[in-house]
Design a protein around this nucleic acid. Sequence first.
DNA 1: CCCGTTTCTGCAAACGTGTGCAGCGTGCCT
DNA 2: AGGCACGCTGCACACGTTTGCAGAAACGGG
Lengths: 338, 338
Amino acid sequence: MQTPTLRDVADAAGVHPATASRALNPATRGLVNAETAKRVIKVADSLGYRPNPIARGLKTAKSGTVGIVIPDLTNPLFPPILRGIEDVLEPAGYSGLIVSTDNDSDRERTLIESLRSRQVEGLVVATALLDHPLLEQLHREGVRMVMVNRRPRDLDVSSVTPDDALGIELAVRHLVELGHTRIAHLAGPSSTSTGVARAKAFRNAVRDLGLTDEPALARECAAWTEEAGAAALRDLRAAGADFTAVVASNDLIALGCYDVLAECGLHAPDDLSVVGFNGMPFLDKLAPPLTTVTIAHHRLGGEAARLLLEAITEPDRPARSVLLPPTLVVRASTAAPR
Amino acid sequence: MQTPTLRDVADAAGVHPATASRALNPATRGLVNAETAKRVIKVADSLGYRPNPIARGLKTAKSGTVGIVIPDLTNPLFPPILRGIEDVLEPAGYSGLIVSTDNDSDRERTLIESLRSRQVEGLVVATALLDHPLLEQLHREGVRMVMVNRRPRDLDVSSVTPDDALGIELAVRHLVELGHTRIAHLAGPSSTSTGVARAKAFRNAVRDLGLTDEPALARECAAWTEEAGAAALRDLRAAGADFTAVVASNDLIALGCYDVLAECGLHAPDDLSVVGFNGMPFLDKLAPPLTTVTIAHHRLGGEAARLLLEAITEPDRPARSVLLPPTLVVRASTAAPR
DNA sequence: CCCGTTTCTGCAAACGTGTGCAGCGTGCCT
DNA sequence: AGGCACGCTGCACACGTTTGCAGAAACGGG
């Protein structure tokens, strides 16, 4: 026989399906005689009854699923975040539907549309741009969501992001303490909050530590990728800029720097100190192991999921933003300037 | 107003919901006048109608979702596989529910239980052990599933796996051509098909290439991890084994070898040539860049998804197994023995 | 003793869609 | 012209669950 239905357990327990429903649901259990409730429950798991979430969802307009929107699963930044999300979703009885947008806003629109048609109860979004019309529209339409890692500029929505300013300051301070005075910055795209926040934090840190803030020592990367990072560093060198260290806005950009150094027969940290941001896995196996600002991505995801569940259960609670403190992991890609 | 329902479009088009349903569904569209069908369709997308998969699923007992069971999202092997799966699932109107078992069989049972209660139509399983009672049971119960990357021993179920024998042969041949005669193998766990297949392939390749197959030059790793790989290599060295190259059963195990070499102040490839298996990302950035047998993981996932969809639409088609050919990527971790 | 209240359970109607069956009209064949 | 088949559409019910409402029984207070 197929998986037993609510009706089956009701019949077996000699009660009406409605009563069985109430007995099985902890929230409504109080409405039914403790005796009967006990009996129904017993019959239920003796039959191995599992409520059908589809049917329930149809009635309650709740699906028990949330959508998770990321740019690309292949970027090693995201798996730990996803794990963090799943680890809090699962005990709460929720499942996550993961989609990869490839940074394509049409694709993003389509995918989110499909998530909504699957009746997701909320969204965890990791693709936020500073100016993000789609997210604004969704917000207006009352879609519950929380941003992770990045956030849009003017949107009153919960988010959990790394403390970019603190992280960059740690990186710059480390380099200054090593004796560097001419430090370059390879910024992330200015369309993202992390890109501009880190760029701004870099300028502040440089000034605060007594160096002069030279615009000629900064380049914006077109994307958060190795290729874009390499291109930016090449550009900086071609322009004849003079620097002994570089703060990359994330680890992939730092890896791009490695590529350029290899092309030119140069080596970190002898010819250039490099520091990354994010703390991707396997950074300690690189040549040389990369000094980087790490954040607890697992926690990043976990907090985001918690905020989302909160927004689902208490819809008119105000949005909250949490900043996660980063730490600097010093490895062999940074050293005193020669 | 909420998202429009089938009833809304029926009213707007001046037809009965049943007619609208038939008009919108390509399979039944033939039953309705072409004229009306056209009108209904037009009204439908002018209203922005999206069928509610929940309701449809309730009626058809199809959820449009499949479960994806992997050991750990954080292992870089899996994201490309997942991408491959999603890329064929999505155009087919399916979504994947991803769960991580952490190689815990109780957890696996619970998670699969929860997937089933969510009415998934099939399973893509990447956690297969050679002897896997749970999978056998599911198969008996008629759950549609396909194995990816690994497969159980005696289970008549579709699978798509790398051609382990060919891959290992490529690796061994490469080392032999470099002049190595004493080659060690760090095997994966013998509880997995890939572990034993690669170990067996290693012995065959060694014999076929005219070397002697010495059991003393093989160790089984307790897990597919860096730590287990490091432990196995330490053990091999402690036993006084004499070898100039090692074929690791996967890239993480190879990374474990790097750790041991670093501990001992040794270097690849001067003191030991190392080759990995899988072609994880960022292997080219390591010190030294790792020679490895790569497989197209994206395709691995894609093929698996295709097989699953096939099994769903044509349930009594016999199981098929596809082997994907690997290629050897030679980098700087292998060289002629000194 | 009666009536109001509480406690519990059953009834039935939803939620949005798919589908067997019947009915209707039209056209064609005899 | 009558009958039959066919093409199309509407009706109604089902899928498995939740939930407002009402009714029954038990109970307590005046």
